[in-house]
Nucleic acid binder design. Sequence first.
DNA 1: TTTAAATTGATATCCGTTTTCACTTTTGGA
DNA 2: TCCAAAAGTGAAAACGGATATCAATTTAAA
Lengths: 144, 144
Amino acid sequence: MEPDRQKFLAYLAGQGLKSTRQRDIIFDAFRSDGSHVSTEDLYLKIRRDHPGIGYATVHRTLKLFTECGLAEERHFGDGQVRYEWVAGKEHHDHLVCVRCGAVSEFEDEDIEALQQRIARRYGFTMTSHRHELYGVCSSCGGED
Amino acid sequence: MEPDRQKFLAYLAGQGLKSTRQRDIIFDAFRSDGSHVSTEDLYLKIRRDHPGIGYATVHRTLKLFTECGLAEERHFGDGQVRYEWVAGKEHHDHLVCVRCGAVSEFEDEDIEALQQRIARRYGFTMTSHRHELYGVCSSCGGED
DNA sequence: TTTAAATTGATATCCGTTTTCACTTTTGGA
DNA sequence: TCCAAAAGTGAAAACGGATATCAATTTAAA
């Protein structure tokens, strides 16, 4: 079995939670497109093939993915939480196009190191960070 | 007259808006403590001395401060918008203590430069960015 | 002063998130 | 296999912060 699915099942078992048909379906749908989707996005996508699955279940399952570390919540400032499948991906930050909403990912070791230095300077034990660049992407005419 | 107040009055005038007693009061209250306060925070503070001023007016006035550049909105992920008085301050980013909620400010030219380089690499015309470090501050036992 | 236009404050509405609850499904033991 | 306990589900309600509404009030220019 794929390690990601295994991780999820292990988390469920460890918490005394159950494996269900709905969770399997949501797992597959989210893994196949876990690129910064909102609960609504995923719900609508799943509904096409599985009209019986409710919004609340999608919501709760995305929370589960987050709790077990397969997914992370993203807040890009439009008042909607987005979920990103992060299993098997390196840490990264985001570029968000303010016109079309496209999200790209970047990583930069130098910035990470500088962040740590700053946290240390302020006596912080850094647990996480958020770093987003907003602008106009090249296809939206970033050159104009 | 202080230049900040002048800037506000000039903005009002330019937009065909009026100067009112409430706006003056909110201006003073916010300027005297414009450190990452929510609308609720400021409303409650103002209400102590001016019980007649409503939440909606505080909300609208904070929006005005933001529009004219005296304030900026901050989103630290707790689902509440915070406003910060930025007039006369250098650009900076934030460290947020996940235990006590304290917010410190930092600035780092090297990180700014690296950001620009990344945006350029992706063909983005960067318009803004958000950079927050989350962790445990020294008074909350960041050393433990 | 007069008057048109903007403002105010209480309240209603919006909208994404989260909870509730009656019914269903899963799971492990008999 | 069957049963019972516990968790899950989905529809709908509740929630919470942000925003809009609207009648009454205030401002400011003539």
